[in-house]
Design a protein around this nucleic acid. Sequence first.
DNA 1: AATGCCGATGTTATCGATAACATTTCGGAG
DNA 2: CTCCGAAATGTTATCGATAACATCGGCATT
Lengths: 336, 336
Amino acid sequence: MDKGSRSPAMTDVARLAGVSHQTVSRVLNDHPNVKEQTRIRVRAAIAELGYRPNRAARALVTGRSQLIGVVARNSTLFGPATMLSEFEQAAADAGFAVSVGSVRELDRSSISAVVDRHLDQRVAGLVVIANTASATEALAEIPEDLPVVFIDGDPSSGRPLVTVDQVAGARAATRHLLDAGHETVWHVSGPTDWFDSAGRIQGWRQTLEEAGAEVPPLLSADWSAAEGYRTGQMLARMPEVTAIFTANDHLALGILRALHERGRRVPHDVSVVGFDDVPEAAYFIPPLTTVRQAFGDVARAALSLLLGQMRDDSGTADQIVVPPQLIVRESAPRRI
Amino acid sequence: MDKGSRSPAMTDVARLAGVSHQTVSRVLNDHPNVKEQTRIRVRAAIAELGYRPNRAARALVTGRSQLIGVVARNSTLFGPATMLSEFEQAAADAGFAVSVGSVRELDRSSISAVVDRHLDQRVAGLVVIANTASATEALAEIPEDLPVVFIDGDPSSGRPLVTVDQVAGARAATRHLLDAGHETVWHVSGPTDWFDSAGRIQGWRQTLEEAGAEVPPLLSADWSAAEGYRTGQMLARMPEVTAIFTANDHLALGILRALHERGRRVPHDVSVVGFDDVPEAAYFIPPLTTVRQAFGDVARAALSLLLGQMRDDSGTADQIVVPPQLIVRESAPRRI
DNA sequence: AATGCCGATGTTATCGATAACATTTCGGAG
DNA sequence: CTCCGAAATGTTATCGATAACATCGGCATT
């Protein structure tokens, strides 16, 4: 209303309700031992004044804010951006705000800087989207007593972690191609220092070996359509290549174009499977068979792990693995 | 070091340096009237203890945190996601953290809820990525004295705003197609309640009218490849359609596929121009001619406007318009 | 009826910074 | 050599919440 005057504080509510500020605090924090009638009176006063608690004051005395810090690299990529968005939604529902801290590289000093900024804000917890090994090393920067959850981190770290089952996804993709009749499957991976890449490579290789298929040389790239295109130009020249599994959809896009330019038809001559299921994957030429990751589930799982840690600091080192799902479209149909 | 004990406070630094805590505060805030020698001694003590100021305490007494709130819708889209990422980088360099608040819809109540959450955190300023008119209406929720900058908002609102010159971008795209020899240009727009869409429609229509070309009916869609595809299926059936300008690259992708399916060659039969220049646009089939938006520049401009408002509350209602750039690729070459 | 305990509430201390005011120090003018 | 004003520094109050302890009734127990 009168925007000039400062916003009401707890004492104002207390005065109006005819109680002490401490009772107001108790009502706010759902303490027991408050008479129902008083509770109602206080709630009414809160509503009447439009009172909203000052989080800074609370953070000062409790030493912890209602803020969750997220450390991520390059949140422009589809995966991280979606994850961040989903996580923010989930956190908001739980009454937390989310502070983002992007870093260009997940090296130790960058991470350390971002973590420090978050510590300055006295974040209640930290989510690290740690897709490379270097990020895990930077772990040491994080105080022991701060709740932390890793997303896409090192499964062998023993730290609380939520991740999509990359191995299973890659197995499904590779299996799908073998079942369609291909003798073997080529793989264009993401950067090899990413856990995501490593898991997909592992799943791909295992599946080939189990099927007794020859394992072609690994082709590694970054995540961009540009490198997919370059790699694709090479693959398009090799007649023995009939099935390609790429580590993400953008790589697949570049490859589709290279194949197209060389006159190799998809899926008639070559089948292609991607990873991610970006919204536009269904509109590639041809529509892309790919592996969908349930980012929303990952985000919600990460939040619940974090909230769990914040409640009891027993350090439950849970790890949650979310299964991915193969989406079959025209670039790699069931039968060729 | 010893993680058990609480982190050092200002008084600890003061004791070590042999001064009062107030002097430490003065050093931290770069006040004048501190002897150089004292300043050095305090700095040394800060370094030795690894002291970091408690932002919650500062926020409590000043009534403002070192946190900038961002209100955005669906930050999964390329534009918003890139904007957010760039803004976070810029803000970090200026010593600010960024708290994100996504909303599913930019209606009044959602915005109001997000703004309230930010106010709870006592944000120092607010950036609203307000791409629809409904967002501008929700303006009223924001206190007068809080620094606010709009990105992609209503240019006629008189509020501080940074935006890409959508009209100029659309003019360049349309002009490019006309110059290449097309009689007219069809336009597939984004949702008409987005300012971005409105500007692009306006630029497109103006350019056609100025050139004396017939203005085809406007086709509006959402931003997805799916709707681009549906619209494209219709356009592909119309032989008189030889040039299409789409409101973003994903729409263009869907259209490219629809044209491909109908056997209409791009650019031989139909030329297509997109908008955004997503990283993979160069790897569409064929590579997409599009309009690049300098999101980084927009983000930095928004931050500087915000910092300006935070310094002097004179309410400088600056508006900054960032020019876009036409990127010519094969889907719409200079000459057909 | 006295005792004791517990539920409901109030009082005071505290977090760690900045703001406002008080005090000391120091250099130069008279 | 004294005095004055500005520069340098110190003291105390304050922000708005929670924590810890204090108080006050009433009800069950003996």
